[in-house]
């Protein structure tokens, strides 16, 4: 294949990776930014989104588009509800202590993963894309659905940004992020903010899972890779910074696409990990993070 089309395909693939990653990582970043909780179970919320999408679409056979829209609405809501429950039952009781919550979310990771294995089973199951549309370029064909994923992820991120900057809920969340005690003094119910933030973060991961499942299939172990990559993105972008997360997702996604296509996927992972190490050494707060 000639260099031009080769690069084009690499960039398109990278863009899809970046879009899914940006969604998943923004949830992780939000939870850390507002709550100072490192959520190790974040990848499992992503997996739950995919598995629930499979379950929901199973109820509406024959109409893939309608089934998918239903999954897109229902799965993230269910996962958000579960996350809110986990927050009330576990994290709140630990007083959001940073070390204790890491251990607790590791436990949560295993509980969700094993529950999925018991209830959903060990198989990978496909979910039909809402539409079967393929773009035929002169050099290669490309899935139209993958482009839809990029657009959908951008729309969701834009909505998230508007919520954070233009609504009262966003203002309350940002206030809590800046100073929990003062926020409480001003009558903000910090417990409710935390519960809402944790649910929103999990919902974003689940949404990424729903979007990705027609490309990848739902499998109970699929949460591992996105968790690792989300951490990489969040560390590079700066914990708690939405803009940093988006830019870091683009850097990681596009470089992963290009490097793994022109060289090997292993090299792409090596370089991403190296970048994390460099950022931690020279700019520990991340590219866009505020100094703690």
């Amino acid at each position: 294949m000639a260099f031009g089309p080769f690069l084009l395909l690499a960039l398109m693939e990278g863009l899809v990776t970046a879009a899914v990653l940006a969604l998943a990582a923004s949830g992780l970043s939000l939870v850390f930014g507002v709550m100072r909780v490192v959520n190790v179970a974040h990848g499992e919320f992503y997996m739950l989104g995919a598995v629930l999408a499979w379950a929901v679409t199973g109820f509406i056979p024959g109409l893939p588009a309608l089934a998918f829209v239903a999954a897109l609405l229902i799965a993230p809501l269910l996962v958000a509800a579960l996350a809110a429950l986990a927050d009330g039952l576990i994290l709140k009781r630990l007083a959001y202590d940073p070390e204790a919550t890491i251990v607790a979310t590791i436990g949560l990771l295993y509980m969700i993963q094993q529950a999925a294995l018991s209830l959903y089973g060990p198989n990978a199951n496909p979910v039909r894309a809402p539409f079967e549309w393929r773009i035929q370029l002169p050099w290669f064909g490309y899935s139209g659905y993958k482009l839809f994923v990029v657009i959908a992820a951008l729309a969701v991120l834009l909505a998230l940004w508007l919520v954070m900057t233009r609504t009262k809920a966003g203002l309350v969340m940002r206030a809590t992020q800046v100073d929990r005690t003062t926020a409480r003094a001003f009558g903000i119910n910090v417990d409710r903010v935390y519960m809402g933030t944790f649910a929103l973060g999990a919902g974003l991961a689940a949404l990424a899972g729903v979007l990705v499942v027609p490309i990848q299939q739902a499998h109970y172990l699929m949460g591992g890779d996105p968790l690792l990559l989300s951490f990489i993105v969040v560390i590079i972008g700066g914990l708690g910074s939405l803009r940093g997360t988006l830019i870091a997702a683009l850097i990681i996604g596009l470089s992963d696409g290009v490097i793994s296509m022109f060289f090997t996927p292993t090299l792409a992972k090596i370089l991403a990990t190296l970048l994390v190490a460099m950022v931690l050494v020279f700019r520990p707060q991340g590219l866009f993070g505020a100094r703690a």
């Binding site: 693939e13 490309i215 890779d225 793994s260």
Partner: peptide, 26 residues
């Protein structure tokens, strides 16, 4: 691996037969 499109450009254009053997959930 869960995504494969990135490997396909390595298939030379003069290929007459594509021999594939993959395993696992993907």
């Amino acid at each position: 691996e869960t995504s494969f499109t990135r490997y396909f450009p390595q298939i030379p254009a003069e290929t007459e037969v594509l021999y594939h053997v993959m395993v696992g959930p993907a």
